[in-house]
Design a binder for these strands. Structure first.
Lengths: 140, 140
DNA sequence: CGACTAAGTTAGCATGGACTAACAATATCG
DNA sequence: CGATATTGTTAGTCCATGCTAACTTAGTCG
Protein backbone atom coordinates (compact mmCIF):
# COMPACT_ATOMS: atom_id res chain seq x y z
CA UNK A 1 0.00 0.00 0.00
CA UNK A 2 2.49 2.57 -1.01
CA UNK A 3 1.55 5.85 -2.53
CA UNK A 4 -0.66 6.46 -5.53
CA UNK A 5 -1.50 2.88 -6.14
CA UNK A 6 -5.16 3.41 -5.65
CA UNK A 7 -6.17 5.37 -8.65
CA UNK A 8 -7.35 1.98 -9.83
CA UNK A 9 -9.73 1.14 -7.03
CA UNK A 10 -12.95 2.12 -8.65
CA UNK A 11 -12.43 1.04 -12.23
CA UNK A 12 -10.87 -2.13 -11.00
CA UNK A 13 -13.77 -3.14 -8.95
CA UNK A 14 -16.10 -2.67 -11.87
CA UNK A 15 -13.98 -4.80 -14.14
CA UNK A 16 -13.73 -7.51 -11.53
CA UNK A 17 -17.45 -7.88 -11.66
CA UNK A 18 -17.35 -7.84 -15.42
CA UNK A 19 -14.78 -10.61 -15.39
CA UNK A 20 -16.78 -12.71 -13.00
CA UNK A 21 -19.84 -12.30 -15.16
CA UNK A 22 -18.29 -13.11 -18.49
CA UNK A 23 -16.58 -16.07 -16.93
CA UNK A 24 -19.88 -17.34 -15.59
CA UNK A 25 -21.60 -16.68 -18.89
CA UNK A 26 -18.94 -18.60 -20.76
CA UNK A 27 -19.28 -21.45 -18.31
CA UNK A 28 -23.05 -21.55 -18.64
CA UNK A 29 -22.76 -21.58 -22.40
CA UNK A 30 -20.22 -24.37 -22.20
CA UNK A 31 -22.46 -26.38 -19.90
CA UNK A 32 -25.93 -25.68 -21.23
CA UNK A 33 -25.41 -24.36 -24.68
CA UNK A 34 -26.92 -21.03 -23.72
CA UNK A 35 -26.80 -18.61 -20.84
CA UNK A 36 -30.01 -17.31 -19.37
CA UNK A 37 -30.22 -14.57 -16.79
CA UNK A 38 -31.45 -17.18 -14.40
CA UNK A 39 -28.11 -18.95 -14.51
CA UNK A 40 -26.41 -15.81 -13.32
CA UNK A 41 -29.01 -15.27 -10.65
CA UNK A 42 -28.05 -18.64 -9.22
CA UNK A 43 -24.37 -18.23 -9.69
CA UNK A 44 -24.10 -14.94 -7.94
CA UNK A 45 -27.03 -15.30 -5.59
CA UNK A 46 -28.47 -11.95 -6.56
CA UNK A 47 -31.91 -11.04 -7.83
CA UNK A 48 -33.10 -10.97 -11.40
CA UNK A 49 -33.15 -7.25 -11.29
CA UNK A 50 -29.53 -7.05 -10.33
CA UNK A 51 -28.48 -9.42 -13.07
CA UNK A 52 -30.44 -7.35 -15.51
CA UNK A 53 -28.69 -4.19 -14.44
CA UNK A 54 -25.28 -5.74 -14.64
CA UNK A 55 -25.87 -7.39 -17.97
CA UNK A 56 -27.01 -4.06 -19.34
CA UNK A 57 -23.77 -2.55 -18.24
CA UNK A 58 -21.82 -5.36 -19.84
CA UNK A 59 -23.73 -4.83 -23.05
CA UNK A 60 -23.06 -1.13 -22.90
CA UNK A 61 -19.40 -1.98 -22.47
CA UNK A 62 -19.42 -4.28 -25.46
CA UNK A 63 -18.81 -7.55 -23.68
CA UNK A 64 -22.15 -9.26 -24.24
CA UNK A 65 -25.17 -9.00 -26.48
CA UNK A 66 -28.69 -9.88 -25.57
CA UNK A 67 -32.18 -8.88 -26.56
CA UNK A 68 -35.25 -8.95 -24.34
CA UNK A 69 -36.19 -12.50 -23.40
CA UNK A 70 -33.28 -13.89 -25.36
CA UNK A 71 -30.26 -15.72 -24.00
CA UNK A 72 -27.10 -13.83 -23.22
CA UNK A 73 -24.21 -14.18 -25.63
CA UNK A 74 -20.63 -13.05 -25.50
CA UNK A 75 -19.11 -10.71 -28.01
CA UNK A 76 -15.64 -11.39 -29.30
CA UNK A 77 -14.27 -9.08 -26.64
CA UNK A 78 -16.38 -10.85 -24.04
CA UNK A 79 -15.07 -14.24 -25.09
CA UNK A 80 -11.53 -13.00 -24.98
CA UNK A 81 -11.99 -11.59 -21.51
CA UNK A 82 -13.71 -14.75 -20.33
CA UNK A 83 -10.98 -17.04 -21.50
CA UNK A 84 -8.28 -14.85 -20.07
CA UNK A 85 -10.08 -14.79 -16.74
CA UNK A 86 -10.66 -18.48 -16.75
CA UNK A 87 -7.04 -19.19 -17.45
CA UNK A 88 -5.90 -16.88 -14.72
CA UNK A 89 -8.37 -18.42 -12.34
CA UNK A 90 -7.17 -21.91 -13.12
CA UNK A 91 -3.55 -21.06 -12.65
CA UNK A 92 -4.18 -19.42 -9.32
CA UNK A 93 -6.33 -22.28 -8.13
CA UNK A 94 -3.86 -24.94 -9.19
CA UNK A 95 -1.07 -22.99 -7.58
CA UNK A 96 -2.89 -22.82 -4.29
CA UNK A 97 -3.55 -26.54 -4.43
CA UNK A 98 0.13 -27.13 -5.00
CA UNK A 99 0.84 -24.90 -2.05
CA UNK A 100 -1.06 -27.42 0.01
CA UNK A 101 -4.29 -25.51 0.42
CA UNK A 102 -7.49 -27.57 0.51
CA UNK A 103 -9.62 -27.87 -2.57
CA UNK A 104 -12.42 -25.86 -1.05
CA UNK A 105 -10.25 -23.03 0.14
CA UNK A 106 -8.35 -22.94 -3.12
CA UNK A 107 -11.65 -22.57 -4.96
CA UNK A 108 -12.79 -19.70 -2.77
CA UNK A 109 -9.49 -17.85 -2.48
CA UNK A 110 -8.68 -18.11 -6.15
CA UNK A 111 -11.89 -16.28 -6.95
CA UNK A 112 -10.80 -13.37 -4.87
CA UNK A 113 -7.17 -13.43 -5.86
CA UNK A 114 -7.44 -13.89 -9.60
CA UNK A 115 -8.34 -10.28 -10.15
CA UNK A 116 -5.29 -8.99 -8.39
CA UNK A 117 -2.40 -10.96 -9.75
CA UNK A 118 -0.21 -9.26 -12.29
CA UNK A 119 1.23 -10.97 -15.30
CA UNK A 120 4.52 -11.31 -13.51
CA UNK A 121 3.05 -13.07 -10.51
CA UNK A 122 0.91 -15.25 -12.69
CA UNK A 123 3.94 -16.26 -14.70
CA UNK A 124 5.77 -17.10 -11.50
CA UNK A 125 2.88 -19.29 -10.42
CA UNK A 126 2.70 -20.99 -13.74
CA UNK A 127 6.40 -21.64 -13.69
CA UNK A 128 6.00 -23.36 -10.35
CA UNK A 129 3.26 -25.53 -11.78
CA UNK A 130 5.50 -26.50 -14.68
CA UNK A 131 8.95 -26.57 -13.17
CA UNK A 132 8.47 -26.93 -9.45
CA UNK A 133 9.40 -24.50 -6.74
CA UNK A 134 12.09 -21.90 -7.24
CA UNK A 135 15.67 -22.79 -6.45
CA UNK A 136 16.91 -22.35 -2.91
CA UNK A 137 15.10 -25.05 -1.00
CA UNK A 138 15.79 -23.58 2.39
CA UNK A 139 14.90 -26.50 4.66
CA UNK A 140 17.64 -28.91 5.72
CA UNK B 1 -16.56 -18.86 -8.70
CA UNK B 2 -18.84 -21.66 -7.70
CA UNK B 3 -22.32 -21.08 -6.49
CA UNK B 4 -23.43 -18.78 -3.72
CA UNK B 5 -20.03 -17.48 -2.92
CA UNK B 6 -20.90 -13.95 -3.74
CA UNK B 7 -23.20 -12.95 -0.96
CA UNK B 8 -20.06 -11.30 0.32
CA UNK B 9 -19.25 -9.06 -2.61
CA UNK B 10 -20.69 -5.85 -1.35
CA UNK B 11 -19.84 -6.01 2.33
CA UNK B 12 -16.42 -7.29 1.43
CA UNK B 13 -15.53 -4.40 -0.72
CA UNK B 14 -16.44 -1.99 2.03
CA UNK B 15 -14.29 -3.79 4.56
CA UNK B 16 -11.38 -3.91 2.16
CA UNK B 17 -11.39 -0.17 2.07
CA UNK B 18 -11.70 -0.07 5.83
CA UNK B 19 -8.66 -2.30 6.15
CA UNK B 20 -6.62 -0.22 3.78
CA UNK B 21 -7.51 2.89 5.69
CA UNK B 22 -6.78 1.64 9.18
CA UNK B 23 -3.52 0.20 7.90
CA UNK B 24 -2.57 3.54 6.42
CA UNK B 25 -3.63 5.36 9.55
CA UNK B 26 -1.56 3.06 11.73
CA UNK B 27 1.39 3.60 9.43
CA UNK B 28 1.05 7.37 9.52
CA UNK B 29 0.87 7.31 13.29
CA UNK B 30 3.92 5.09 13.43
CA UNK B 31 5.82 7.42 11.11
CA UNK B 32 4.65 10.86 12.14
CA UNK B 33 3.16 10.42 15.55
CA UNK B 34 -0.26 11.44 14.28
CA UNK B 35 -2.41 10.85 11.27
CA UNK B 36 -4.02 13.80 9.49
CA UNK B 37 -6.56 13.53 6.77
CA UNK B 38 -3.95 14.91 4.44
CA UNK B 39 -1.82 11.83 4.93
CA UNK B 40 -4.64 9.68 3.66
CA UNK B 41 -5.28 12.02 0.76
CA UNK B 42 -1.73 11.40 -0.34
CA UNK B 43 -1.72 7.73 0.37
CA UNK B 44 -4.82 6.95 -1.59
CA UNK B 45 -4.63 9.72 -4.12
CA UNK B 46 -8.20 10.79 -3.47
CA UNK B 47 -9.61 14.17 -2.55
CA UNK B 48 -10.07 15.61 0.90
CA UNK B 49 -13.76 15.16 0.55
CA UNK B 50 -13.46 11.47 -0.11
CA UNK B 51 -11.19 10.95 2.84
CA UNK B 52 -13.65 12.81 4.98
CA UNK B 53 -16.50 10.59 3.87
CA UNK B 54 -14.57 7.44 4.44
CA UNK B 55 -13.23 8.47 7.80
CA UNK B 56 -16.75 9.28 8.89
CA UNK B 57 -17.83 5.80 7.94
CA UNK B 58 -14.92 4.32 9.83
CA UNK B 59 -15.88 6.37 12.84
CA UNK B 60 -19.47 5.24 12.50
CA UNK B 61 -18.19 1.69 12.40
CA UNK B 62 -16.11 2.15 15.50
CA UNK B 63 -12.70 1.83 13.96
CA UNK B 64 -11.41 5.37 14.41
CA UNK B 65 -12.14 8.47 16.42
CA UNK B 66 -11.61 12.02 15.30
CA UNK B 67 -13.06 15.43 15.96
CA UNK B 68 -13.15 18.35 13.55
CA UNK B 69 -9.68 19.64 12.83
CA UNK B 70 -8.16 16.99 15.07
CA UNK B 71 -5.92 14.14 14.03
CA UNK B 72 -7.38 10.73 13.35
CA UNK B 73 -6.87 8.06 15.97
CA UNK B 74 -7.57 4.37 15.98
CA UNK B 75 -9.89 2.73 18.46
CA UNK B 76 -8.90 -0.54 20.00
CA UNK B 77 -10.85 -2.34 17.32
CA UNK B 78 -9.17 -0.20 14.69
CA UNK B 79 -5.74 -1.01 16.02
CA UNK B 80 -6.54 -4.67 16.08
CA UNK B 81 -7.76 -4.60 12.51
CA UNK B 82 -4.75 -2.58 11.40
CA UNK B 83 -2.25 -4.94 12.87
CA UNK B 84 -4.01 -7.97 11.50
CA UNK B 85 -4.07 -6.39 8.05
CA UNK B 86 -0.48 -5.37 8.23
CA UNK B 87 0.61 -8.82 9.20
CA UNK B 88 -1.36 -10.38 6.40
CA UNK B 89 0.03 -7.88 3.97
CA UNK B 90 3.57 -8.60 5.04
CA UNK B 91 3.20 -12.32 4.74
CA UNK B 92 1.72 -12.08 1.26
CA UNK B 93 4.36 -9.66 0.13
CA UNK B 94 7.21 -11.73 1.49
CA UNK B 95 5.73 -14.82 -0.04
CA UNK B 96 5.56 -13.23 -3.46
CA UNK B 97 9.14 -12.11 -3.13
CA UNK B 98 10.14 -15.64 -2.29
CA UNK B 99 8.22 -16.79 -5.34
CA UNK B 100 10.63 -14.72 -7.33
CA UNK B 101 8.38 -11.78 -8.05
CA UNK B 102 10.05 -8.37 -8.25
CA UNK B 103 9.88 -6.03 -5.31
CA UNK B 104 7.67 -3.62 -7.14
CA UNK B 105 5.19 -6.18 -8.33
CA UNK B 106 5.12 -7.88 -4.96
CA UNK B 107 4.23 -4.56 -3.37
CA UNK B 108 1.41 -3.93 -5.78
CA UNK B 109 -0.03 -7.41 -5.96
CA UNK B 110 0.09 -8.00 -2.24
CA UNK B 111 -2.14 -4.99 -1.74
CA UNK B 112 -4.78 -6.52 -3.90
CA UNK B 113 -4.36 -10.05 -2.70
CA UNK B 114 -4.18 -9.52 1.02
CA UNK B 115 -7.90 -9.02 1.30
CA UNK B 116 -8.71 -12.30 -0.33
CA UNK B 117 -6.50 -14.85 1.32
CA UNK B 118 -8.10 -17.08 3.90
CA UNK B 119 -6.43 -18.10 7.09
CA UNK B 120 -5.59 -21.43 5.55
CA UNK B 121 -3.83 -19.93 2.55
CA UNK B 122 -2.06 -17.42 4.72
CA UNK B 123 -0.82 -20.18 6.98
CA UNK B 124 0.44 -22.08 3.97
CA UNK B 125 2.35 -19.01 2.82
CA UNK B 126 3.78 -18.42 6.24
CA UNK B 127 4.87 -22.01 6.46
CA UNK B 128 6.76 -21.60 3.21
CA UNK B 129 8.48 -18.54 4.59
CA UNK B 130 9.52 -20.45 7.69
CA UNK B 131 10.10 -23.96 6.41
CA UNK B 132 10.67 -23.65 2.71
CA UNK B 133 8.56 -25.02 -0.09
CA UNK B 134 6.25 -27.94 0.45
CA UNK B 135 7.60 -31.46 0.02
CA UNK B 136 7.60 -32.92 -3.46
CA UNK B 137 10.22 -30.88 -5.24
CA UNK B 138 9.16 -31.89 -8.70
CA UNK B 139 12.16 -30.79 -10.69
CA UNK B 140 14.96 -33.29 -11.28
C1' DC C 1 -57.21 -22.32 -25.68
C1' DG C 2 -56.50 -20.53 -21.12
C1' DA C 3 -54.29 -20.71 -16.70
C1' DC C 4 -50.34 -21.08 -14.42
C1' DT C 5 -45.40 -20.82 -13.80
C1' DA C 6 -40.95 -19.39 -14.99
C1' DA C 7 -38.25 -15.87 -16.77
C1' DG C 8 -37.37 -11.24 -17.71
C1' DT C 9 -38.20 -6.22 -17.20
C1' DT C 10 -38.98 -1.75 -15.13
C1' DA C 11 -39.22 1.66 -11.59
C1' DG C 12 -37.72 3.37 -7.52
C1' DC C 13 -34.64 3.26 -3.63
C1' DA C 14 -30.22 2.74 -0.62
C1' DT C 15 -25.36 2.65 0.08
C1' DG C 16 -20.46 2.98 -0.85
C1' DG C 17 -17.11 5.41 -2.80
C1' DA C 18 -15.59 8.74 -5.84
C1' DC C 19 -15.70 13.68 -7.55
C1' DT C 20 -15.90 19.25 -7.72
C1' DA C 21 -16.73 23.56 -5.74
C1' DA C 22 -17.23 26.57 -2.16
C1' DC C 23 -16.48 27.56 2.41
C1' DA C 24 -14.24 27.51 7.33
C1' DA C 25 -10.62 26.90 10.59
C1' DT C 26 -5.83 26.77 11.83
C1' DA C 27 -1.06 27.77 11.39
C1' DT C 28 2.67 30.42 9.90
C1' DC C 29 5.25 34.25 8.74
C1' DG C 30 6.32 38.95 7.55
C1' DC D 1 -1.88 41.57 13.74
C1' DG D 2 -3.31 40.17 9.22
C1' DA D 3 -2.50 37.85 4.74
C1' DT D 4 -1.57 33.50 3.03
C1' DA D 5 -1.18 28.64 2.77
C1' DT D 6 -2.58 24.37 4.61
C1' DT D 7 -6.01 21.59 6.28
C1' DG D 8 -10.70 20.27 7.02
C1' DT D 9 -15.75 20.47 6.13
C1' DT D 10 -20.09 20.70 3.62
C1' DA D 11 -23.13 20.41 -0.17
C1' DG D 12 -24.33 18.46 -4.22
C1' DT D 13 -23.42 15.11 -8.08
C1' DC D 14 -22.31 10.72 -10.27
C1' DC D 15 -21.91 5.76 -11.01
C1' DA D 16 -21.84 0.75 -9.61
C1' DT D 17 -23.99 -2.49 -7.13
C1' DG D 18 -27.33 -4.16 -4.66
C1' DC D 19 -32.42 -4.40 -3.24
C1' DT D 20 -38.01 -4.84 -3.46
C1' DA D 21 -42.26 -4.60 -5.76
C1' DA D 22 -45.03 -4.65 -9.57
C1' DC D 23 -45.38 -5.76 -14.13
C1' DT D 24 -44.97 -8.37 -18.81
C1' DT D 25 -43.69 -12.09 -21.78
C1' DA D 26 -42.96 -16.78 -22.88
C1' DG D 27 -43.62 -21.52 -22.24
C1' DT D 28 -46.14 -25.59 -20.66
C1' DC D 29 -49.79 -28.47 -19.69
C1' DG D 30 -54.51 -29.94 -18.72
Amino acid sequence: MRKKTHERTRRDHASEVAEDYVEAIAEAIANNGVCRAVDLVEQFAVTHATVNNTVKRLQRDGLVVTAPYRPIELTTAGKRLASRSKQRHEIVEAFLRKLGVSEQTAAIDSEGIEHHVSKETLDAMQSVLQNGWPSPKKSR
